[in-house]
Amino acid sequence: MKNDGCTPRACPSSEAPVAGATAERGAPLLQLGRRPPDRRAILGASVAAVAAAATGSGCGNHRFDAHYKELTDEDKRRIFERIEAETRARTGVDVKISAPQPMDGVEFAYALDLSLCNGNRRCAEACARENNLPDVPKFRYIQVLEMDRGTLDFENANAYYEHDEVPVPGKVYLPVQCQHCANPPCVKVCPVTATWREPDGLVVVDYNWCIGCRYCIAACPYFGRRFNFHEPTVRPRDINPDQGYISNRLRPVGVVEKCTFCLQRTRVGRYPACLEACPTGARKFGNLGDPNGEVRIMLERKRVYVLKEELGTLPRFYYFYG
């Protein structure tokens, strides 16, 4: 039997040593100096320094970090510690940054039973808490579309309904979040490879590398991405301290972010927060590589469909009527 992403297992890289770290929370250039002085880093730093000076936005030393895929374990340790310290200084909260790695033979997928969904939106709120989404200005990764029974017409859908009680008679509900496409148009268009599909199917963003051009938002057919138009503010008591570097850590203003199927949870064998919060049991999550995985079973037993199949994006998010 292959790995099932939903069996609890420890993640080695989340146990990165913290003690004994040398003081390196100073200026960014000093930190750079700790690395072997390779041409790329120095050139990058000087260009960025000029850019920062020219634009006056020298805020945050993340401007000089390398791309996630080029970080060594040592780089990661250093950067994670720095972010932890910064967060502590800024919010008073002790957070733990980690970067759990994909597991062999795992491809995550989601399935959602539309006959059970009643539009209560607990998933969207649980997601917001798990993934440190801001309340001011408020946005959510999950849009629950309310539509008239008898249609699946987005144009007449409403994602901003407010009712005392759901479901409203005559209405149906369709939750939409990033579909983690196997052929993701958002990844293709990114000019700096700041977003990509991981081997286990999770489409992620390197918040330090994104330039904020929003081309990926234009390219996504499912409204799966959000841009931080404002400085995102999460109340300190709401901050989830268990943070993934390419998933739910606190994001800076000016970058794009998105649902990661709760990478920080699912890669260590837990369910996504939206699934755990759903009171109707409409949400199923699992490993496509596992013949007994929840989603595999749904794919085999139910008649499933994907949104906008004609676009060829190959979503890994399946809908069905149970």
């Binding site: 041409r39 990058g44 260009v47 401007r63 000019p191 700096v192 330039i211 929003r214 000016g254 970058v255």
Partner: peptide, 26 residues
Amino acid sequence: DVGGPANLWHLIPFIGRPNFPVSLLT
């Protein structure tokens, strides 16, 4: 128009990671 002008150096070949030739923006 970009959210992080200080990150624009990521577009420069060799020091950044331009997504050429896949991204039409490059």
